[in-house]
């Protein structure tokens, strides 16, 4: 059991996770933001490692990835920065990014490095289930890393069952099929989809992400799942004045 599993087991209230891009706005802001987000009360953190061609992302995260790369961020630098992670941060931390940088770093090396610095899970949206299961799963299990899969309203029940079987952390529900940064669609269809998933009684908990930006969308997510993930809204917030000092204010604007 890793920190993430324990969190889902122990905490009963709606969970809030914050995503941001490593190396943005400054190369060395990664750990400071991580620490500040924990202090402000978030339950876990997703640190994005940047990629030149983030095709599942909207303009906000495209921009943060671009700046982070310009600042010199890459996986080697990130793992170096995270060496002191567990001296400063105790909540679960996940890394999120695209598969190509991971392949170049080496999947086995990547999983080892995650475990060395105390990362609990990984979200790689373009790593296919087939390749994960047949080539890489053992590296994840050996390092007690949760591999997080995404589900959209179009994902079939059979596939969701398979994802549930392969998952060991939580399942990441997209509010709709979309790139990051769109607003959560509050509609009858979305309700029907969320309750359909809830009624499947999956073995893994679920969280809703993509398009959560305020109390209303957070509460909506918490109605059906264990909580929500905020990404683009936080990355956009980091661009505002005195953002570092105002992180608690941001967290309260999502979960008062």
């Amino acid at each position: 059991m890793n920190r993430l599993n324990k969190l889902f087991q122990d905490k009963k209230d709606a969970l809030l996770s914050i995503y941001f891009t490593a190396g943005y706005p400054n190369l060395n802001s990664t750990l400071d933001i991580t620490e500040a987000v924990e202090k402000a009360g978030a339950d876990f953190i997703e640190i994005g490692f940047p990629y030149s061609d983030p095709l599942a992302d909207g303009p906000v995260i495209q921009h943060s990835s671009h700046i982070a790369l310009q600042n010199g961020m890459n996986l080697k630098v990130l793992f170096q920065q995270l060496k002191d992670l567990r001296k400063r941060v105790s909540i679960p931390v996940l890394l999120m990014g695209y598969v190509n940088p991971v392949l170049q770093y080496g999947v086995a090396n990547f999983c080892d490095s995650c475990s060395e610095v105390g990362v609990d899970g990984v979200i790689v949206p373009d790593l296919p289930m087939y390749e994960y299961e047949n080539l890489y799963k053992d590296n994840f299990i050996k390092n007690k890393l949760s591999n997080i899969f995404l589900v959209t309203p179009q994902t079939s029940e059979e596939r969701i069952r398979k994802i549930d079987h392969l998952s060991n952390g939580f399942i990441y529900l997209l509010s709709s099929s979309s790139t990051t940064g769109k607003n959560l669609t509050v509609s009858n269809e979305a309700d029907a989809y969320f309750s359909r998933i809830r009624d499947m009684q999956l073995k893994n908990p679920t969280m809703i992400g993509f398009g959560i930006s305020d109390v209303k969308s957070f509460n909506k997510a918490a109605e059906y799942t264990r909580g929500a993930i905020v990404g683009s809204a936080f990355v956009k917030f980091l661009d505002t004045e005195n953002a570092m000092e105002r992180i608690p204010e941001f967290i309260r604007s999502i979960r008062p």
Partner: peptide
């Protein structure tokens, strides 16, 4: 190029050591 993933398939692509295209 080197082996890697671009636009949904594993192939050969021009990329940095860090896997940026």
């Amino acid at each position: 190029g080197k082996e890697g993933v671009l636009h949904g398939s594993r192939s050969i692509l021009m990329q940095t050591e860090d896997g940026q295209v």
